[in-house]
Every structure is written in structure tokens, then in C-alpha cells.
Design a protein around this nucleic acid. Structure first.
Lengths: 238, 238
DNA sequence: TCAATCCAATTTATCTGATAAATCGGATTA
DNA sequence: TAATCCGATTTATCAGATAAATTGGATTGA
């Protein structure tokens, strides 16, 4: 009963089908779902079934055509960065591969995001990064949630780039942290080293030093990647 | 009448409202849209209006609550990497700022994508990159569309990373190319230099040299950025 | 026999209308 | 004055009917 939230019928159908699709229950090639089928399965009206299908289509998972039903689109069209899609994927992903993929992407764009944040040098947005950093420090001594303050730090960096196209990546960061922080903390205790690493990123950005910010972010994420790999090995997860 | 395609009523409503939202017609803060309002405006049924709203909500633009109507969500929740959202944004973006933002993001992740493609070294997926390269060469001598072959090259690189989270970025690349290739070609003629630059990326990936692939991609995109900036200056676009 | 065309059944798209559930704002009351 | 209650409005869901589009087989002609 964790977080059931009595969601709407449409959301219920959307979430269940989304998890099943991301879990690979339907062959991505050409399988099809019919309206009638969905209504019967969930004992719902056609309105609810159709709205759920529209949502899944909007996220790139389905393509609906009159008479043909809803076919699963090729993987390359799936909106893997969408928050819901990430959630559905998380439910069925193999931990090791999943976290590695997420960190590869974070390494690709967060380093440049830090560099951009440093060179833009927007006072307000950089202040938000520092604020998140202070929240992380508080969390490291037991005052607050370590995952959300960590996420807030990285989201603040994305916002400080002044580039809208970095914003949607915060969902990926959040997913990665939800996955890795509990795992690594359980093995290594509170991530003290992490706090120092975040501090280096913050100071480089505050100094307006793009190159140093890029390197500091790179060092930090490489460290996380190494730590997660160790953790996954130790716990024997696949 | 270019590309009208007689789309469905739902899609029509979705596209018009999407363009208006991305164009900033509705204050992102707290404005609201009512079902009744939408039905009346488009002379459509509530089903069509509701399905359009669900699609826009799925892309992070709206949040609908009983009695409250559909409110515009804060910008940070918008799915700017979604193909439709990118299209709506393109319709109202100021050319100079838009293309700069897109290229900043491309510089952030395409360099790492090239590096990953090189180190994974998957024969089939690298063959696809070469195939796209040959299509680009043909296009440079008038045989085929220069935009789509260029896009295919970069999408093939993303696919060759073996990382699903790079795939959704192909929409951004496609948008960037649709924007920049015609502009620069009109001023500089066929992009011969571009072909050489793509060749360098391809050879580095085929050689499995991650560092060289990363640098080749970086050089190429920096060059494009410089060229687009010049073009925008010359044409006097804002 | 084969190919092209046509037709009918099925499925999605859209509309209409009705009921349930949730929320906001004002009225009521202590 | 503040907390609570209640009614009106709006979204959520359901039900049923018609329109439009597509598939697959039947028909027709060479």
C-alpha cells in the first residue's frame, strides 16, 4: 500500500500498461492493443481507455491507427527521458545495466552544464545551487533527505545553464539518485566525500571558472560511477 | 496548404494549443483552460478536447485538477526534448537564441556519444553510421536530401552508444539541422567542409578511438556553431 | 490463373448526454 | 474572528450512437 494515492482510472490504466510495455511484455515490433481489449481488462469505459492510450502515444510508446489498433513503436521513438517512462523502466530494469546507462548520460551532459553555469554567472541561479549545497550538508548530519537535496543541487546547476533543453534531464538525475544513493549509503555510510566533491563544483561555478567546473563535475560523477559499480558487485545484483 | 494532412480533430486542437503555449500566449504561472472553453473555441466534442488536454499534460505542459481546470505548469516541467514540443517551440522561437541553445546541448552530449560509440565498437551499428555518411556524400552532389542524411548520421551515432537514454535526443538534432542546414547552405553553398568533418568522426569511431571521436565531433559542432552565428549575423535575424 | 477492383465487416474517431466525484467560495455558526 | 458546513461549478467517468477509415476477402475481367 505504499503511495497508492487512489489515482484516477485513466492514470491506473496508463501506469499498468506503461510498466508492462517498458517491461517488455509486448513485442516492440508490431503487437497491437485494441480499445475493446483494454476496456474489458480494466472494466473501464472507452473514454478512460482511450485517454490512457493517448497519453502513452504522447510519450512515444504507441502509434494508433483506425482499424489497426495501437501498435508498439520502435524503441528509438520511446521518450526515455520522460519522468513517467523512467519510472516504468525503473520497475523492471536490471540494476547494474540501468545505473551504468544513467551515469553515462549524466557524465555526458552534466559536465557541460556545470561549465555553462559557470560562464553564464547568473547570481540568483548560482545562489540556488549554494542553497541546495547547504541542504546537502544538513542532510549529511541527519537533517533532511539526502536524495532530494542532492537532486536539488544538480537541478539547480541545470537551471543555471540558462538553456531550456537541459531542464528535462532533471528527471533522469532524480531517478539515478533514487537508485544509487540508498544503495551506496547502505554500504559506505553517509557520503561525506560526496559533499566535498559537490563543494568543489559549487566553488568553481561561483568563481566563474568553466573549465574547473567541468572537471569537478566529471571527477565527482566518475567517483559515483566507481562507487555504484563496487556496491552492485558486493550486493551481487545483476 | 503545405502538409495539412487532414489531421484528426484531437491532433488539431493539440497542435494549436501546443503552439500557443510554447509561444507564451498563456502565462506559465497559473492561467487555466476549461473544457467548456476549448469545446466552444474549436466547435469540438468534450472527448476530443479532453484527449488533447491529456496529450499536452503527458508532455508536461499542463496539470489538470477537478474543478480547477488545466493550469500551465512551470517551465522546468516542460518536456522540451519531445518532438512535438520542439516543433511547437520552433514555430515561435527567435532564430539566434534558439539555434545557440540547441547547439550548446548538442556539444554537451554528442561528443560523449561519439566516444561511447567508438569504445562499444558494435559492427552493425557502426556500419549504419558509414551508410549515412555515404548518403551524405551523395547528397552533397545533389543526390538526395542533405538534411535527412545528416540527421541519419547523427542518429546512427546515438544508436551506436548502446545507451537508450541517448535516443530521445535525435529529435533535437533533427530540429537543429532543419533550422541550420538551409540557412547556412543558402549562404555558403553545399557544406563540403562538413562532409570532411563527418568523415573524421566516422573514421575515429571505426578505429575504436574514443578520444579522437570525441574531439572530431567537438571540432565539427564548434565549426557549425561558428558558421550559424555568422549566418544569423549576415541575415540580420534576431 | 492472376491481377486489379470493389465491397462488407470491423475498429477507431467523434459526438451527445447523463451521472459521480472533487473542489472552490460563500454562508453559517460557535 | 475563525472554523465548519453546504451548494454550485467543473472535471472524471460512464453509456450509447454515428461517422470515418482500413483490412481482407469476394468479385470481375483479361
Amino acid at each position: 500500500m505504499a503511495g497508492d494515492q487512489t489515482s484516477s482510472v485513466t492514470d491506473e490504466i496508463t501506469n499498468i500498461l506503461g510498466r508492462e510495455i517498458l517491461g517488455g511484455l509486448f513485442p516492440p515490433g508490431a503487437t497491437l492493443l485494441g480499445e475493446e481489449e483494454i476496456c474489458a481488462r480494466f472494466d473501464a469505459s472507452r473514454s478512460a481507455a482511450r485517454e490512457a492510450v493517448k497519453i502513452l502515444s504522447a510519450k512515444g510508446l504507441l502509434l494508433t491507427r483506425p482499424r489497426r489498433g495501437s501498435r508498439i513503436r520502435p524503441l528509438k521513438d520511446w521518450n526515455f527521458l520522460d519522468p513517467s517512462v523512467l519510472g516504468w523502466l525503473r520497475a523492471s530494469a536490471t540494476p547494474r545495466h540501468f545505473i551504468t546507462e544513467l551515469l553515462e548520460v549524466r557524465l555526458a551532459f552534466e559536465c557541460e552544464a556545470a561549465a555553462l553555469a559557470a560562464s553564464r554567472n547568473n547570481a540568483d541561479e548560482i545562489a540556488a545551487i549554494r542553497e541546495a549545497f547547504e541542504a546537502m550538508r544538513a542532510a549529511s548530519s541527519g537533517q533532511g533527505d539526502p536524495v532530494s537535496s542532492d537532486a536539488a543541487f544538480h537541478e539547480a546547476v541545470l537551471a543555471a545553464t540558462g538553456n531550456r533543453f537541459f531542464l528535462p534531464l532533471s528527471a533522469l538525475i532524480h531517478t539515478a539518485l533514487q537508485y544509487s544513493v540508498p544503495t551506496t549509503n547502505a554500504l559506505f555510510g553517509h557520503p561525506v566525500g560526496d559533499l566535498d566533491a559537490h563543494g568543489k563544483v559549487l566553488r568553481a561555478i561561483e568563481a566563474g571558472d568553466a573549465a574547473r567546473a567541468r572537471k569537478a563535475m566529471h571527477d565527482m560523477l566518475s567517483e559515483v560511477l566507481a562507487r555504484v559499480r563496487t556496491a552492485v558487485e558486493l550486493t551481487g545484483a545483476s
